[in-house]
Structure formats: C-alpha cells, structure tokens
Amino acid sequence: MTEGLPTRAVFLPDRLDFSFAAFLRLVACLCLLQGIFYWVRLIGYYPGDLYRFDLMPIHWQIAAAALAVLFPFAAAGLWMLASWGPIIWLLCAAGEIIMYAGFPQYFGNKPVVIVSYALVAALYCAFRAALQIRQRRQAMQQARSAASDDALG
C-alpha cells in the first residue's frame, strides 16, 4: 500500500547530539551570567570604582554596553541551539580577547579569560568535527545501501 511513496528520513539524536546540546546550553548559562555581570556594572549596583556607567572611562563604557547586550543575546541563541548563537558568542569572545590581550593597559590583563575562551572554542570545533565525520559516514553508508539495492533490484 505504501509502495512507491517517497519516504522521509527520520533524525534520531544520539549521545553526540545530546552532548553537543548540553555543551551549548552550559556555554549559554555562562554567557547569561557574564551578561548579568555587565548589566550590574552598567547600572552601578556593585560598589567600587569603575562600576558605574557614568564613572567609567569611555573605553569601558563602550565595551561594557556592547557586551551587556551581546552576551544575553548569545545566551539565547546558544540555548535555543540556533545557528547564530555560536556566532554571537564568537563576537563576545573576540571582544573580550581583544580587550584583555590587545589593550591590557586599558582593561587589565586576564589570561584566564583568554584561555577559557580558547578552550570553549576548541571544544566547539571538536564537536563540530565529530558531527561532520558522523554525517559523512552516514551518507557513505546510505550511498552503499542504495547502490546495493540498485544492484539487487
């Protein structure tokens, strides 16, 4: 009865997919915390020098305002597993790396932040490579299966 009808491939997530989703959501939580930190800094809730927007030097005002908006935006994209989430995270990470590595005289030197972003980026690349390898293997298996079906039929 269903012979001759086109079939749809069904995607069944496996352990790699779940791990990648958990990784992205963990990064999303960290981005949200960083965004909250920048908002706390902007509204002046935290006591201390340079922790109120009107008392910050202009370079901190620009960086804090941009990152206060971008980090929660990246968190939303990462949590939803949207394709643009990692791109916005990369903008945030690049901004902070440029701040702390490129201009330590203005923003301070935070090598832990730089190393942590490098580790997260390396893990992301490893996940994407593993997903790509799995996809190629599945495509090759489907091609072999189709070729053997054609030879038999």
Rank of each mutant, 00 (worst) to 15 (best):
residue 41 R to A: 15
residue 21 A to V: 10
residue 114 I to M: 10
residue 94 A to N: 09
residue 104 P to R: 05
residue 135 Q to Y: 04
residue 74 A to Y: 03
residue 113 V to S: 11
residue 128 R to P: 03
residue 48 G to K: 13
residue 129 A to P: 00
residue 14 D to H: 14
residue 142 Q to V: 03
residue 50 L to W: 09
residue 104 P to H: 04
residue 117 Y to C: 03
residue 62 I to L: 09
residue 41 R to W: 10
residue 68 A to G: 05
residue 142 Q to M: 15
residue 15 R to L: 09
residue 138 Q to M: 05
residue 93 A to L: 09
residue 53 F to H: 06
residue 85 G to S: 12
residue 143 A to N: 01
residue 41 R to N: 13
residue 50 L to E: 13
residue 127 F to D: 05
residue 84 W to D: 09
residue 77 G to L: 03
residue 44 G to N: 03
residue 102 G to S: 00
residue 125 C to T: 14
residue 67 L to C: 08
residue 41 R to K: 13
residue 68 A to Y: 06
residue 86 P to V: 10
residue 28 A to D: 11
residue 79 W to N: 05
residue 75 A to Y: 15
residue 76 A to P: 04
residue 146 A to R: 01
residue 84 W to H: 04
residue 45 Y to E: 03
residue 126 A to E: 07
residue 97 I to L: 01
residue 43 I to P: 01
residue 99 M to H: 00
residue 60 W to C: 07
residue 96 E to H: 04
residue 147 A to N: 08
residue 4 G to I: 10
residue 69 V to I: 15
residue 69 V to T: 14
residue 50 L to I: 00
residue 31 C to Q: 15
residue 24 L to I: 00
residue 25 R to N: 11
residue 42 L to T: 12
residue 116 S to E: 04
residue 85 G to E: 13
residue 113 V to D: 05
residue 126 A to K: 14
residue 48 G to E: 08
residue 89 W to A: 09
residue 66 A to P: 04
residue 70 L to I: 07
residue 69 V to H: 06
residue 65 A to Q: 10
residue 125 C to F: 15
residue 85 G to I: 09
residue 103 F to D: 01
residue 59 H to C: 06
residue 44 G to P: 03
residue 14 D to V: 09
residue 96 E to I: 07
residue 17 D to R: 09
residue 54 D to Y: 07
residue 132 Q to L: 08
residue 57 P to K: 12
residue 31 C to K: 14
residue 82 A to W: 08
residue 60 W to E: 09
residue 60 W to R: 02
residue 77 G to Y: 11
residue 96 E to F: 08
residue 141 Q to F: 08
residue 42 L to A: 12
residue 49 D to P: 07
residue 10 V to H: 05
residue 5 L to N: 04
residue 29 C to T: 01
residue 58 I to F: 09
residue 108 G to K: 05
residue 43 I to R: 06
residue 140 M to E: 01
residue 111 P to M: 11
residue 89 W to H: 03
residue 88 I to Y: 02
residue 96 E to T: 02
residue 86 P to C: 01
residue 52 R to D: 00
residue 85 G to L: 04
residue 144 R to Q: 06
residue 123 L to Y: 03
residue 38 Y to M: 13
residue 87 I to V: 06
residue 26 L to D: 00
